[in-house]
Design a protein around this nucleic acid. Sequence first.
DNA 1: ATAGGGTTAG
Length: 695
Amino acid sequence: MHRLGSHILCRNIIPKCELEAHYDALLQSYNSLPTLGQIHSSLTTTGFIRQSPHLGARILLRYTKFGHSEKARHLFDNIPNGPNSFLWNTMLRAYTNGSHFSQTLVLYSLMRKTGIKPNNYTYPFVLKACAAQACVVEGNMVHCDVIRTGFDSDVHVEAGLVDMYAKCGAINEGRKVFDEMSSRDVVCWTAMITAYEQAERAESALNLFYKMQQEGLSMDSITAVTVASAVGQLGDTKKALTVHGYVILSDLVWDVCVGNSIIAMYAKCGEVEKALLVFDDMRERDGITWNSMLSCYIHNGLASEALFLFDKMQASDVKPNPVTALVMVSACAFLGSKNVGKKIHDFIVTSDMEIDVMLHNAIMDMYAKCGDLGTCLKMFDRTPSSELNASSWNALISGYGMHGLGREALEIFTRMKEEGVEPNHITFTSVLSACSHVGLIDEGRRCFAEMEKSSVIPEAKHYACMVDMLGRAGRLHETYELIKKMPSQPSDAVWGALLLACRIHGYTDLGKVAANQLFHLEPEHTGYYVLMSNIYAASSKWQEVGKLRQYMKNKGLRKPAAFSVIEFGDEVYGFHTADQLNPFRRDVYRKVEALAEEMKMAGYMPDRSCVLHDVEEEDKDQILNYHCEKLAVAFGLMKIEPGLDIHITKNLRVCNDCHSALKIISNIYGRKIVVRDANRFHHFQGGSCSCKDYW
DNA sequence: ATAGGGTTAG
């Protein structure tokens, strides 16, 4: 600041133009806000700022660069003879870029009142502010000004208008502007395509994209990303391949953002291998690239592949970020892999990444879903209540519920309300299903009534919980009445819950009502055909059973593969019934057959009704032996040292036969076996299950 | 001297 001071002292002997040049140079070379403030204040105290509008404008510009719109505005208001158009635009830009959108609009109306003429640079800033706040009325007024001042054929202004209308939800207005343009460049096309994509009108977006190509315009990386997102919405592999082709032809695949969006597009189309090919071919990968590939695996049911890729990511030059952590933690929750989950938790704690509420909640949820309620509760208790939100409480409530601890879940629900946290739709789902798992009917009814009085609108999933709860408890007619009273169309979950209740309690006719709805709503869902044929079988209606089976055969419907995973050390091992590739299959199959003999000695009788295949009766026992949860248990008994619990996660519900077998096995081997199925936890110990056979 | 389209991981 010495130089600056000397200039001020010598101001009387240096001509004004030279002084301006000096300050210009100073402003160029000093790039920090404090210095700028010092220059500003010395210019103010010496009064130069009044003598030289040029310097004032310079400082104003600098202030806007640092995002200090207030300081800039102060200078703006004190410019002798008022600011020129350029400075008006600069000031508007400062507000818009600083997200002070209402200030932009206020200043714009001041500009009009003052009689300053807006120009082609003015409108984009103002339109952006309207778009950001979805001010369609103001936007419309600006549009009128645009027409009045004759800037309605400027391509930048027009693109701004299209975008403004789209962001205000007035797509058709935007389209009108778009259609009336005399010439459109790639930006305008992309603005219009994005408008459709954002409005979830993916077909329209793609049609417009094809039209753009027909007109001979080539896309750029932004177009590519938007179009890929539109295809992702449709989940259409054929279209995905076409878009991928265009991207290759336009030489855009090497753009990281484009590559990322192509991976996400394939992920949403269920094309894991294609996504992986793109991933492997990328020349450059950022955090989003890795996270996209990880979540591609997870959303397509390949969580163990995700764990493998996560290790590779740690060895790469891109380090995991909080989103990576979130993706991985939920993968572990899905798989029920507590050891891996803990490893990732440790990684999160030791790396210095920021843990926000969302991640914190996801970790608690992971522990609960991996059967470690203790750690979940400990984390909850150690968190200051100011840092807990509804999802934190939900994690605990659903955790207790899944373990069949309905009373505890209700207690937490009460505490949550006492602490002033508003329950949301997930809270009510968790509470209702907690009640359902243990048959707390009165409490469940009370919660449902409470929800009807609260601001949470009961959705189909809440009705499904109620139907499940009442149905399991045998109150089938009450259930049916509830369904008839539903304000919306009953979903497949609702009818499914009723069908299950009919299976449990042997109601054939009501079952048929539910099944007919389901066959209509979800014709491809095999589980419902299986349930209905179980109902027929239970009342010896073999002809009907045969008819259903034939129907499934004709339609080529197959039961989704049952799958169990078990953790051993830091590895996750998967088992499914006809797995010829499993490296442990020989030992495991031998063990499972030995188990069958041991169980028979302890009084086990295979439940052949659990086998739907059309095979000889003796062969059914073999099929039962190879059910995936039995294979996983056999593996666990061989590998996991005595004294440790055996944890298994299954993608479907445990079948009746496996449920009774696991009870007996827990008794013979004196081990605790914890199984999480599609609905809840079963803790097998000493010959009985924590669900008390109510499931 | 100033301007328009942005999603992709959750």
